[in-house]
Amino acid sequence: MNEIIFFGRNEFPILIKNEPEEITKPIQFKFENENENEKQIKQISSGNTSIIFLFKNGKAIEYLHENDSNQKPEEIQIEENIQKVTVGDDIEAILTKEGNVFAKGEDINSKNPKEFINISSLIEDINDRIIQDIVCGEYSIYLLTSNQNAYGIGLNNFGQLGFDSKTLKRTEKPILMMKNVSKIFSGNSSRYVFLLNSNQELFGCGFNGFGQLGLGQSRRKEDGIQKLTKIQNIPKGKIIDIQCGGWHSIMLIENENETENPKRKLYSCGGYEYNGLRKNEIIDEFTEIKSSLFENDDDILDFSCGDYHSLILTYKGKMISFGDNESDLMKIFLVIMFFVEI
């Protein structure tokens, strides 16, 4: 059973009907004429211009950000079983069970931006065309192959593909960024990316005007970090996850020394209005977020960064939020959460 909770700017009127423009209290959402398939949601990904719902049967439907309340959702016509969906500002990507990636958007396919194309088939090395994972940045898409190689496609205006933005503004063909990659981290409002290798070494590139990459004040650059750079002074422990907002990043670290019940801690850097550290200054290196709301008797289960805000979910089911609450400033207009009862 799925329970979908919605709050924020209501700019998808076909989804959330008879509600005000700004929904300040969480409300439950149900599909109109809900069928059995729509009761088995696997994933939801949302951005400025669209939302994609992925169901457990390998099908997905897309809602566009339009003001027409009569707009009908479109089933995404991909013949292969869909395993994951990811949405950026004006780009979308779909990973299938067969390891193919279909994507669309102006920065991916300028000739026909509304048509999904197989971007994994455009990788030059035919041995790298089976994709294991996908992540959307704001205007870029990152691919992790079964050979543990990371590729990028889309905009590179801040060096978020790891290349000099003056010589490569964007690419409609995936380009190799780094080898020996275990995880890729970015966000649908982020113009930067982190790559983690198998040795737990973290690298980053892209927009760093607010210290989002955790490189230190001397490395802060408004025009971006143009090549992949190793992130120093990472807190001790295993990196479990990194969430990237527009102006801040949050990292989840697990203390591997505590074998029986390893403690998870959150670390943040970036713009002080949104990083959860309550300091009136930009934080240029990852710094622990401390709060009595998730210490001692509870632990971090999951968390997410929006453009100007963050959400934390604890193992006890407690939801914690911080950041900017003025929805007229938000570039990500909604937050959707869902819990699946197994």
Score class of each variant (00 low, 15 high):
Ile4Met: 10
Ile4Asp: 00
Ile4Lys: 08
Ile5Met: 12
Gly8Glu: 01
Phe12Cys: 12
Phe12Met: 14
Phe12Tyr: 15
Pro13Leu: 00
Asn18Arg: 10
Glu19Gly: 04
Ile23Thr: 03
Thr24Leu: 11
Lys25Trp: 03
Pro26Gln: 06
Ile27Glu: 08
Gln28Ile: 09
Phe29His: 09
Lys30His: 12
Lys30Ile: 07
Phe31Gln: 00
Glu32His: 10
Asn33Cys: 05
Glu36Trp: 04
Asn37Cys: 04
Glu38Ser: 05
Ile41Arg: 00
Gln43Cys: 13
Ile44Tyr: 09
Ser46Val: 11
Ser50Cys: 10
Phe53Val: 14
Lys56Pro: 02
Lys56Thr: 13
Ala60Thr: 04
Ile61Glu: 00
Glu62Pro: 00
His65Cys: 11
Ser69Glu: 15
Ser69Gln: 13
Ser69Arg: 05
Pro73Cys: 10
Ile76Gly: 01
Ile76Val: 07
Gln77Phe: 00
Asn81Cys: 01
Thr86Ala: 13
Val87Ser: 00
Val87Tyr: 00
Asp89Ala: 06
Leu95Trp: 08
Lys97His: 11
Ala103Thr: 10
Lys104Tyr: 04
Gly105Asp: 14
Gly105Trp: 05
Lys111Ala: 07
Ser121Thr: 06
Ile126His: 07
Ile131Glu: 02
Gln132Thr: 04
Asp133Gln: 05
Cys136Glu: 02
Gly137Thr: 00
Ser140Thr: 11
Ala150Pro: 05
Asn156Trp: 07
Gln160Leu: 05
Gly162His: 11
Phe163Glu: 10
Leu168Glu: 01
Arg170Tyr: 06
Arg170Gly: 05
Glu172Pro: 05
Lys173Asp: 06
Lys179Leu: 14
Phe185Pro: 04
Arg191Asp: 14
Tyr192Ala: 00
Phe194Met: 08
Phe194Lys: 07
Phe194Asn: 10
Leu195Arg: 11
Leu196Gln: 15
Asn197Asp: 15
Cys205His: 02
Gly211Thr: 12
Gln212Asp: 10
Gly214Gln: 04
Ser218Lys: 13
Lys221Asn: 11
Gln226Cys: 04
Thr229Lys: 03
Lys230Asn: 15
Pro235Arg: 11
Lys236Ala: 12
Lys238Asp: 10
Ile242Tyr: 07
Gly245Arg: 14
Gly246Ile: 02
Leu252Pro: 11
Glu256Asp: 13
Asn257Pro: 02
Glu260Gly: 01
Glu260His: 10
Arg264Gln: 14
Leu266Arg: 08
Leu266Asp: 07
Cys269Glu: 03
Glu273Lys: 15
Glu273Arg: 15
Lys279Leu: 10
Ile282Asp: 06
Ile283Phe: 03
Ile283Gly: 03
Asp284Pro: 03
Thr287Val: 12
Glu288Gly: 08
Glu288Pro: 01
Lys290Tyr: 11
Ser291Cys: 09
Ser291Lys: 13
Leu293Pro: 02
Asn296Gly: 06
Asp299Thr: 15
Asp299Arg: 09
Tyr308Phe: 08
Tyr308Thr: 10
His309Asp: 05
His309Gln: 09
Lys318His: 08
Met319Gly: 03
Ser321Asp: 12
Asn325Arg: 13
Glu326Arg: 11
Ser327Glu: 14
Asp328Leu: 09
Leu329Ala: 02
Leu334Asn: 12
Phe338Met: 03
Phe338Tyr: 11
